[in-house]
C-alpha cells in the first residue's frame, strides 16, 4: 500500500516530460477544406481536420473513395484545387504547404516529412545498396562524412530489424517485408515529424504485417512521430491509429477516436464497413 503511494508520488519524478506536455499543443498539421477533382470526377472534397504532435490518424474507405488523393494532396504529390495544408514548420511556424514554393516543399519532403509507399519499390532506389538507400536523405541534407553516414545507416537497419551484414546488398535481394522495413528506415533516418503512409502493410503476408505493425508502433512511440495512414484494413487502423477518418465518394463521412468509430459507428456507410469485416 505504501508502495503504491510512493510510486504515485514518484510519478512526477519519473515522468517530468509528461507533466511539461500538459499545455495544449498547437496542431502539427491543419488541413482546411481540401478539395481535388480530376475533371468531372471528384477526388476528395472539403476535407478538414487537425493532427496533433504524436497522433496517428487512419484514413479508411473503399477503393476510389478519395483517400489516396487526399494523402497525395497533403504530402505535396498532388496539387489540390482548393484548400490549405498548414504544417507547423520548425523554422517559421505554421505555413501553408500548398502555396509555399516547390523547393521549400521538397525540402520538407526530405526532412520533416516522410512518405511510405505501399509498394516498397516505389519508395526505394533498387539500384542502390540498403546502406545507400538509408543514407540518401542524410546526404541530401548535407552529410558529407562517409563513416558517419554508414554508422547511421547501420544503426537504422538495426532499428528496423535488418541484419547489419545486409547493408551492402541491394533491396532486390530482400523479401517484401524487409523492403518495407528498409523503406521505413530510409524515411525515418532524418528524424521526420510527420509520416504519410499509403497502405503500408498492403501486399505483405499476415505474419509479416504483424511484425511491421509492431515496429511502426514502437517507432511512432519512441520518436514521438505523427502519422497519417491510408489503408482499407480496419485491423491495421485499430492497432496503429489513435484517430480514424472514414471516406466515401470523396467525402469524409465520419471521424473520431479509432475504437469509437469502429465500435459505435454513426454513419450508415461506416456501419456497413464495420459489419462487413470477416471475423477470424
Amino acid at each position: 500500500m505504501t508502495d503504491a503511494q510512493n510510486s504515485s508520488k514518484n510519478f512526477a519524478k519519473i515522468f517530468p516530460k509528461n507533466l511539461a506536455a500538459q499545455a495544449a499543443p498547437a496542431p502539427l498539421l491543419s488541413v482546411r477544406d481540401l478539395t481535388k477533382s480530376y475533371g468531372a470526377h471528384l477526388g476528395c472534397a472539403d476535407v478538414s481536420f487537425d493532427l496533433f504532435p504524436g497522433e496517428v490518424m487512419g484514413i479508411v474507405g473503399e477503393s476510389g473513395s478519395g483517400k489516396s488523393t487526399l494523402l497525395g494532396c497533403m504530402a505535396g504529390h498532388l496539387r489540390p484545387d482548393a484548400g490549405a495544408v498548414i504544417f507547423d514548420t520548425r523554422r517559421d511556424g505554421p505555413r501553408d504547404t500548398v502555396t509555399m514554393s516547390e523547393p521549400e516543399r521538397r525540402m520538407l519532403g526530405r526532412t520533416d516529412w516522410a512518405f511510405v509507399h505501399q509498394n516498397a519499390r516505389d519508395g526505394l532506389r533498387v539500384g542502390v545498396s540498403a546502406g545507400g538507400n538509408v543514407g540518401e536523405r542524410l546526404m541530401a541534407v548535407g552529410a558529407r562524412h562517409y563513416g558517419d553516414i554508414r554508422a547511421a545507416a547501420t544503426d537504422w537497419l538495426g532499428r528496423v530489424e535488418i541484419a547489419p551484414d545486409r547493408i551492402d546488398d541491394r533491396p532486390g535481394t530482400f523479401s517484401g517485408g524487409m523492403q518495407q522495413r528498409l523503406q521505413i528506415a530510409r524515411n525515418l533516418v532524418t528524424g521526420p515529424r510527420l509520416v504519410f503512409m499509403d497502405e503500408p502493410t498492403g501486399g505483405l503476408d499476415v505474419s509479416v504485417q504483424a511484425r511491421l505493425l509492431d515496429l511502426m508502433r514502437g517507432l511512432v512511440r519512441d520518436m514521438g512521430l505523427s502519422a497519417i495512414i491510408v489503408t482499407h484494413d480496419l485491423a491495421v487502423v485499430r492497432l496503429l491509429a489513435d484517430r480514424l477518418m472514414v471516406m466515401k465518394s470523396g467525402h469524409v463521412v465520419e471521424q473520431g477516436l479509432t475504437d469509437q468509430v469502429l465500435d459505435d459507428p454513426q454513419h450508415g456507410y461506416t456501419q456497413l464497413l464495420v459489419s462487413s469485416v470477416l471475423q477470424v
Binding site: 505474419s207 511484425r211 512511440r221
Partner: peptide
Amino acid sequence: VPRVPTLDVVAEPLRALG
C-alpha cells in the same frame, strides 16, 4: 498486435508515458 511479447504488451502503458 500479434507476435508482440507479453512483457512488452504489459509494459506498453508505461512506455507510452515515456
